[in-house]
Amino acid sequence: MAPEPLPVRCHVVTGKGGTGKTTVAAALALALAADGRHVLLVETEGRQGIAQLFDTPPLPYEERRVAVTRGGGEVKALAIDVEEALLEYLEMFYNLKRAGRALRKMGAIDFATTIAPGLRDVLLTGKIKEAVTRRRDGHRVYDAVVVDAPPTGRITRFLGVTAEVAGLTRSGPIKTQSDGVMAVLKSPQTAVHLVTLLEDMPVQETADAIAELTGAGLPVGSVIVNMATEPLLPEEQLERAAAARLTGADLAPALAAAHVHDGTAIADALAAQAVEHAQGWAAQDELRDEVAALDLPTVELPLLPGPIDVGALFELAGRLEEHLRTEVAA
């Protein structure tokens, strides 16, 4: 049996640099692909971060399977090459494939994307829209498309540049294509998810991006708090340490009972670490309140030990699956 259709089919993942948005995008693709779904994971920045996460060779400009999930689902990945996307665009709308190849030899494509930086984003969003709406034998090829998008600082511009291009012409293939892209990106089948850390700057950038996206009429999805840590102390001791009321003298008797050599110095060092940890946790908790005030669905992903590999991606995907089920039920 075919899986139930998803209410959101285009998931755009953004976040301040360093928040782990590529990792979250990959985990989200795995979560969406569970139970037999087919998902495309798209990379837009040319860093080959997806290939590194799934431990595969660098991705060419073609859709390749990178993972199989529960129930026979699969994740394919695509690293969009701007030059190839432009050639594809010229062939699709103007039947100029041969001319496009000649332009590439002349270096005209690099020249065009340099003097018109917005052209790059138009090609990227156009390819994303094509994947979201693609059909074969009357059925959608992908149940969902996940986009590892540019950072929050330019996400609104990235998603909205096609609308600007559409405003430059009243008719023709460019106008039609641009309108089609914006119809998908501004529809309920798209959601822009924001990845943040419980740190001042990422949380502030997240709030700013939400305001910009909302103002531009782009649909905001969830806030994903990445690399969240758990407190190492019980609540009562945590509050005491955060108030700097925990000292080495409080820990010294236990160390002495354990016959720890030079227990006083160790007790002082341990108390200092406990106070630092507790105060850091208190600061994170305040930022949790700020994230909650954004009034969006929120999920926390844990800080995992060691490097992120495929096993770690599936662990994060499990957390995101729970969140997705909650959102669908709501």
Rank of each mutant, 00 (worst) to 15 (best):
P5T: 02
P5S: 01
P7N: 03
V8S: 06
C10W: 00
V13D: 02
T22N: 02
A29L: 09
L30E: 06
V42R: 02
T44L: 14
E45F: 01
E45M: 10
G46E: 05
Q48E: 11
Q48P: 05
G49C: 07
I50N: 08
I50Q: 13
P58F: 04
P60A: 05
Y61I: 00
E63C: 11
R65K: 11
V68N: 09
L87Y: 04
E88Q: 11
Y89R: 15
L90G: 02
L96D: 10
A99M: 07
G107Y: 00
A112F: 14
V122N: 07
R134T: 12
V141Q: 14
V141F: 12
L159V: 08
E164P: 00
A166F: 08
T169I: 14
R170H: 12
T176D: 14
S178H: 02
S178N: 06
D179A: 11
A183L: 04
K186I: 01
E199L: 06
A209Q: 03
E212H: 11
G215E: 09
A216Q: 09
G217C: 09
V223E: 09
M227N: 12
A228T: 10
A242G: 15
R245C: 00
I266D: 00
A272K: 12
A272D: 13
A274P: 01
G280C: 05
A282H: 13
E286K: 15
P297S: 02
V299N: 03
E300H: 07
L301M: 04
P302C: 08
D309W: 02
V310M: 06
E315N: 06
L320G: 01
R325L: 11
E327W: 11
V328H: 12
